[in-house]
Design a protein around this nucleic acid. Structure first.
Length: 772
DNA sequence: CAGTGAGCGAGCTTCCGCTTGACTT
């Protein structure tokens, strides 16, 4: 019989705590929530004061029955779920599901997993805080009402299987709003003037100085006039300002900042970051990875100080505690940090190593001294104009935390690197070697990446560390948004240069609008977004969550009764649901683009059952209109008549090959060439079906034939050895068999194959039988 | 492997937040 049973949320945590508590304590895990509103029904009795109907989900029944057994055998049950709203609710559900006595069950909390903190927690047990539990219930019920009442409206008015929710719908709105800003953005250009100056300083040394003119010239003529003015002018160093500065390290990682930096520095998606972090956590290498706190335990601060001092010297050490300032933070955990600071590296996969090192560096740097810098600004005056040139440079006098870690930022192509400036003197005269005016276009606001969307959501207090990755995945799996690349477009910029008194003009080309792994809203996301904004403006408001969070806090502190809060919300909300069902027609995003100049038929774009289409002509009983799908990078909202009409260019004949026509088409699996009854896929990213040439089409057919030839390694009648995607394999009577490691597929005989087939069958059958 | 695009109606979809495996490939 167990004396004491301690229940925590995570099994990895249970393992660690058990070590600290000793023999009299058994520590087990609930694996998060053990009970929830019923899965397929609303699970709320609205007319009975919003009474929630809870169920133990199928995949939690085993855990629950084990916990029940253990709890019945224990003398005292301690519930050590997290110290936040959700943790308190877990504690309450545990007491109720396991049939525990609320009086004698001990609720304990610890903020950090250290012996001291755990001992302290055990010494000060309390009871479950029902106000906090009610705040969680209100949160849960509100989310269920919003999600389960609005989603069915979308099924009726837009498309089946869509979804809406307090969090996901606002996330989509952020992307749609941003996309429209980009659509409506009109790029402007101005000329930015830079110069390279030479001179000799007091020490007699020749120096070269690059400087920029703070004034921008809006037209080419103005820029040219300025350069003409520069020609023949004399330049002198007018002023030198040296300003000391400091830079401080960023706080240790939270879930959100870890996702951002892992994306920027390692190129991880948010899901990938969480999966790798989970592995590190389970192996006991890092603290818990779903946290909104930048707090470090006293123990962590001490060991970090030790490591910094040992590794870099005491001059580099500075112990800091960071305040968490993110909205709605509940701080049930520590910041993300290495469990043992003295381990700079870790074993594991390459990605585990890289993420661990990032976490180590960030946490260690947070306990290091400020960097000391010296910023120098040199002003260069010219005789013929009041306009100046300035050169700024930065020298790092003491690197401090920069020795281990520099935070990255989302930049929009502008590099702000500060060079080290040469020594110059006030009054020194300078000769311009070259002065250049380069046309610079303004750029639209940037599209979100997965990580920058998480950052924005966190700023708005929307979503929790445990849900950032799932939110990003949900809005993509619903088809609202997609992570895509864009090649960008070439544009011509003008450059005028002044060298040796002569002005030359040249044109350069640059790529604008190139995107890599950005989140793009899709048509269905925009349609749903517009529908929701017009029908449920309050819920789509960026501040909706912040508002209800305030009310949840009031419930938690006992100032507000949860049923009252929900009831006040539900009245007008449910009315909007009814109105949206009765009043509004289906949303299809239809746009009339005009008429086809050839046939005179109307051209419209709209959302069809299978995605966005362009339609040529009206549907009538005797005539079906023509349809074509929009391309991946086109939007219903922005496509033009001309662009839409070219979509009807497929299928088209590009020429003949071996006396048969080659037809380019767009099928279920992408663009193809059809030739004497066979299909040949075009190469993704290489071939454009609208412009592909006859020659290239022939090449694709030949390549495919060549590849097919390579496919067959050997043939023994009904047994064939083929080259597949995963390497060579044997095929026989529609079954495929792996070739054992170490054997050369070229040398296999028919007998060898038969042997493999015999073995393969035995190994396969039980596997196939398991499948239902 | 190589497109669908209508309408009817049954039965399904759906939220957010806390946790990991159990499944394929």
């Amino acid at each position: 019989m167990t004396e004491n049973l301690v229940i925590v949320e995570s099994p990895a945590k249970a393992k660690t705590i058990e070590k600290f508590l000793g023999k009299d304590f058994t520590v087990v895990s609930s694996f998060g929530h053990i009970r929830d509103l019923s899965k397929n029904k609303l699970g709320i009795e609205v007319d009975k004061g919003f009474r929630p109907v809870y169920e133990v989900p199928e995949d939690k029944k085993k855990v629950v029955s084990e916990l029940k057994k253990l709890a019945s055998q224990a003398k005292t049950v301690w519930i050590a779920s997290d110290e936040d709203r959700e943790g308190e609710a877990i504690a309450w559900h545990l007491i109720s599901v396991l049939g525990l006595d609320p009086e004698s069950t001990r609720r304990i909390v610890f903020h950090e997993i250290t012996k001291e903190a755990i001992k302290q927690a055990v010494e000060s047990p309390r009871q479950v805080d029902m106000n906090l539990v009610n705040a969680q219930q209100a949160r849960r019920i509100l989310d269920r009402l919003v999600g389960f009442e609005i989603s069915p409206v979308l099924w009726k008015k837009v498309q089946p299987s869509l979804s809406a929710g307090r969090v996901q719908s606002v996330a989509v709105r952020l992307l749609v709003d941003r996309e429209r800003e980009i659509i409506n953005f009109s790029s402007d250009s101005a000329y930015r003037v830079t110069g390279t100056f030479a001179g000799r300083n007091q020490e007699g040394k020749d120096v070269v100085l690059k400087a920029e003119c703070p004034k921008k010239f809006s037209t080419e003529a103005e820029a040219r006039a300025f350069l003409e003015n520069c020609s023949g002018a004399s330049f002198t160093v007018e002023n030198i300002v040296v300003r000391p500065g400091t830079r401080s390290p960023a706080p240790p990682f939270t879930t959100s900042t870890l996702q951002q930096e892992a994306y920027r520095k390692l190129g991880f998606s948010v899901a990938q970051t969480m999966a790798v972090a989970q592995k590190l956590y389970e192996a006991g290498k890092i603290t818990y990875m779903r946290t909104d706190s930048t707090n470090l335990s006293a123990l962590a601060l001490n060991t970090a100080r030790q490591v910094v001092t040992d590794e870099y010297g005491s001059k580099y050490s500075r112990t800091r505690q960071f305040k968490t300032h993110s909205k709605g933070a509940q701080e049930a955990h520590e910041a993300i940090r290495p469990t043992y600071f003295d381990k700079k590296e870790t074993a594991g996969t390459n990605n585990e190593k890289r993420l661990y090192e990032l976490i180590w560096r960030r946490a260690i740097a947070s306990q290091m001294a400020d960097a000391e810098t010296e910023k120098t600004t040199i002003t260069i005056g010219m005789s013929s104009s009041p306009v100046n040139f300035t050169a700024t440079g930065e020298v790092i006098l003491f690197d401090g935390f920069l020795k281990v870690y520099t935070e990255s930022y989302d930049t929009n192509g502008t590099d702000d690197e500060k060079p080290i400036l040469p020594r110059v003197n006030k009054g020194m005269s300078l000769t311009p070697e070259i002065i250049t005016a380069l046309q610079r276009f303004t750029t639209p606001p940037p599209r979100y990446t997965e990580a920058s969307l998480v950052k924005k959501l966190e700023e708005l207090g929307i979503g929790r560390p445990s849900t950032y990755a799932p939110i990003i995945s949900t809005i993509q799996s619903r088809g609202y948004v997609a992570r895509e690349d864009r090649p960008g477009e070439k544009r011509i910029v003008t450059q005028i240069s002044l060298t040796k008194g002569k002005i030359t003009r040249s044109e350069k080309s640059e790529i604008a609008g190139k995107e890599k792994s950005k989140l793009f809203p899709k048509d269905i996301g925009m349609i749903v977004n517009d529908f929701l904004i017009s029908n449920f403006p309050d819920i789509l408001d960026y501040n909706f969550t912040a508002g209800v969070e305030k009310e949840f806090d009031e419930i938690a502190s006992g100032e507000l009764v949860w049923e009252k809060m929900i009831s006040l919300f539900y009245g007008p909300f449910h009315k909007s649901v009814d109105e949206s069902l009765s009043n509004k027609a289906r949303m299809t995003g239809t746009r009339q683009l005009g008429n086809d100049p050839v046939t005179g038929l109307p051209v419209i774009v709209k959302m069809s059952r299978f995605g966005p289409v362009v339609q040529l002509g009206e549907a009538s009983p005797d005539k079906k209109p023509r349809f074509a799908n929009l391309k991946r990078d086109q939007l219903l909202e922005t496509i033009t008549l001309e662009e839409a009409l070219t979509l009807f260019d497929l299928p088209r004949t590009v020429g003949t090959f071996e006396e048969s026509e080659m037809v380019i088409g767009l099928g279920k699996f992408g663009p193809y060439v059809r030739h004497s009854g066979k299909f040949y896929s075009l190469k993704k990213g290489v071939d454009d079906p609208y412009t592909i040439t006859e020659e290239r089409a022939k090449e694709i057919i030949r390549e495919k034939r060549e590849g097919d030839k390579m496919k067959v390694i050997n043939e023994f009648g009904d047994i064939r050895i083929l080259n597949g995607r995963y390497g060579p394999y044997i095929t026989h009577e529609k079954n495929n068999y792996r070739i054992p490691k170490g054997s050369d597929p070229l040398k296999l005989t028919r007998e060898d194959c038969l042997a493999i087939i015999g073995k393969g069958n035995q190994g396969k059958k039980p596997k196939a039988a398991r499948k239902k």
